[in-house]
Design a protein around this nucleic acid. Structure first.
Lengths: 212, 212
DNA sequence: AAAAAAATCCTGTTTTTAGGGGATTGTATG
DNA sequence: CATACAATCCCCTAAAAACAGGATTTTTTT
């Protein structure tokens, strides 16, 4: 039985690399690729692969969200997250959204092939490095914050004061203050600086250009 | 004349992709690759390529620093920065350190070949997207901060108060406050939240695990 | 329907930052 | 050798955030 594989990644070099690595694998069939979430979904309407290798950074949507969407519509497809970042936050979210594998971009051909074969068996594949990260941080999960707390966090990151945030959200300043306190507690930090640093590092805060 | 090219990148998939893309180019010779800064320097002691494609994220040293080092010892080698990030801060630092090209990992074969040919001519190559970024932000350079300001910035990011920083650096609290004010001014922001966000995003603040 | 979680609001106090002014001493660099 | 820049220090005021300890009302989830 040949395993049909589809790749979603917006980097030509990586696409080309994976194709080259899988070229001589007789048990694996390269079905094609997509360079963004939209064309991935379009492709899936026509045909379904057994395994999708999915980059977590895509131009139109995060691979994390795309993973959820694909799994919702096509639960039988196995998804392997693909990233250069060995970060707890990414790995965790990807697995929560239905991925059963997580591969770093420095994976060797052997790892790549083994990963595909493993998820097809219904098992979970994490590369060694990734596994280490997950184990090490097993009890230090990414904080679970509510929708409202997220809104407040983003506005804090934008440099707004509690008062300004209150006006923007049509709530009282004291409410904003409460959300802020809860954020500090959940992140286990004691001031805004640490809060924003952590949030930025686990990619909770979207990138904005320095100024233009 | 054949152009000798060497690649420094720690991702197999990217290495393999570039090799595959350059395979049929008769005018380009693949000399080999290194997966970290140390083995790159070791290789250069034996032989020198005409062009190095250099990832800016390496395990042992940043490509930005490696670029400087290579250019110092081997000024005639042309260096093209390689990254998935189209970020002013990276591009700027890479060019400051002697690179004459900057390529995104979503570059096509044509772009890749053209980039190599361009830098060999002694000209600067930036992919279109990158060029746009540079132009757009031409006046909003990455702030130039002093050594001491950097120290203070990192301690602020670590969650220390002015007072705690003062004790740690054996200086007065008012001095720390002055540095802090200067940081806010240089980043053109009005509070710590924005400061840390910007600093984290232009990679001034090193990544630390959420906690372990 | 009950319990849990989220969102809202309050009153205080203390600590820390931000904003406005300075000023002095080195150390580079033109 | 002047002058720019970095690093150090000071005062004062106002604003904002952190800390403590509540409470009520919606939503969700069980």
């Amino acid at each position: 039985m040949v395993i049909k594989v589809f790749i979603v990644d917006d980097h030509y070099m990586v696409l080309e690399g994976i194709r080259s690595l899988l070229q001589n694998e007789k048990s694996i069939e390269w079905m094609g690729h997509a360079m963004n979430a939209a064309s991935c979904m379009a492709f899936l309407q026509q045909q379904q692969p057994d395994v999708i290798l999915m980059d977590i950074n895509l131009p139109d949507m995060s691979g994390i969200d795309l993973c959820k969407e694909v799994k919702m519509k096509y639960p039988s497809i196995h998804i392997i997250g693909l990233s250069s970042f060995n970060q707890q936050s990414f790995i965790q979210k990807m697995l929560e959204n239905g991925a059963t594998g997580y591969l770093l971009k420095n994976a060797t051909r052997e790892e790549l092939v083994y990963a595909i074969e493993t998820v097809i068996e219904g098992e979970i594949f994490l590369s060694d490095e990734v596994e280490l990260t997950v184990q090490k941080n097993e009890d230090s999960k990414v904080p679970i914050i509510t929708r409202r707390e997220m809104e407040v966090l983003l506005l804090i990151a934008d440099g707004l004061t509690n008062n300004e945030i209150a006006i923007k959200l049509f709530i009282s300043t004291t409410t904003v203050d409460t959300h802020r306190k809860n954020l500090l507690a959940k992140f286990e930090v004691k001031n805004t600086a640490s809060l924003i640093r952590m949030a930025a590092q686990i990619q909770l805060i979207p990138y904005i250009k320095p100024k233009n």
